[in-house]
């Protein structure tokens, strides 16, 4: 029943040009090993991201920013509410209730997710990790290897590292490999959770440029950055999350001025 209702609503919530519409999203963690304690991480979040828009989430540590991104990617299961996505074919789907298999397919093709850490797959060369992201996007193997080379150059990963297993890379190198994989071709929706936290200033600037370029190509970006500078450089809108709720939503400069200190408190 619920699926029907939400599908109908979501069509309206996702007019053409809008990529993501989160509605009434709640997330509870029930910890059965800790006497069934329940943590209410998200308490009814509404949020939308248009094509070519970069929405930056801000707010204090523990506010629920990462949880929100993970619900959208379905690494976390939504407790209630809807996560509407308008796919590149124009179909409207609810990521909160969509069958697992369909989510798996959709992730590879349309959603890039770059988290703070690359949990590198064991015994997999750097170039392979990035090329596999391309294969999931529908590229042929040869094409994916070429695209992987381009993506790795773009984030400044030296060719000497391409055949190396990613597990042995430095934190910053891993993070750049992660970014190369997430952006091997422009995804429909890009989720970024502190993607430059381990980078030195030079690499940081080039990755931020890369992200700015993707937005200009029409990618919808939903991000968490812990530095104000990155938000000011990239975001077209800022959403402040506090205690699992949206506390403010609007123009980056206005929101950051009104909430100064809070937005980047960690």
């Amino acid at each position: 029943m619920r699926e029907m209702d939400s599908a109908l609503d979501l069509q309206k919530e996702l007019p053409e040009g809008r990529v993501l519409a989160v509605r009434g999203l709640t997330k509870d963690f029930t910890m059965h090993l800790v006497d069934g304690r329940v943590a209410h991480a998200l308490k009814g979040v509404d949020l939308e991201v248009e094509q070519g828009e970069h929405v930056a989430l801000a707010g204090p540590s523990g506010a629920g920013k990462s949880t929100l991104l993970r619900c959208v990617y379905r690494t976390y299961l939504t407790t209630s509410g809807a996560i509407g996505l308008r796919t590149s074919t124009g179909a409207v789907v609810d990521l909160a209730t969509m069958p697992d298999w369909d989510v798996a397919m959709l992730r590879g093709r349309e959603i890039g997710y770059v988290s703070q850490f690359l949990r590198a797959e064991p015994r997999r060369p750097v170039i392979e990790i990035v090329a596999r992201a391309g294969i999931a996007r529908g590229m042929e193997r040869g094409e994916a290897l070429d695209a992987a080379a381009v993506a790795l150059r773009r984030v400044g990963i030296d060719e000497a590292l391409w055949p190396v297993h990613a597990t042995v890379l430095s934190g910053g190198q891993k993070q750049r490999v992660n970014i190369a994989a997430g952006t091997i071709s422009p995804p429909r929706l890009l989720l970024l959770d502190e993607p430059v936290s381990a980078l030195d200033p030079v690499n940081r600037v080039s990755v931020l440029d890369l992200i700015a370029g993707l937005r200009e190509q029409g990618v919808a970006v939903l991000s968490v950055f812990h530095d104000l500078e990155a938000i000011e450089m990239l975001a077209t809108r800022v959403v402040v999350v506090e205690g699992g709720r949206v506390a403010a939503d609007g123009d980056p400069h206005e929101v950051l001025r009104a909430n100064h200190g809070l937005a980047v408190a960690r």
Binding site: M31, R74, T75, Y76, V103
Partner: peptide, 18 residues
Amino acid sequence: AGLTDQLLEDPQHPYSQQ
């Protein structure tokens, strides 16, 4: 039943959590 990463990051059933 779930996606592998979801099951490892956000297991729902008490037994899965264990």
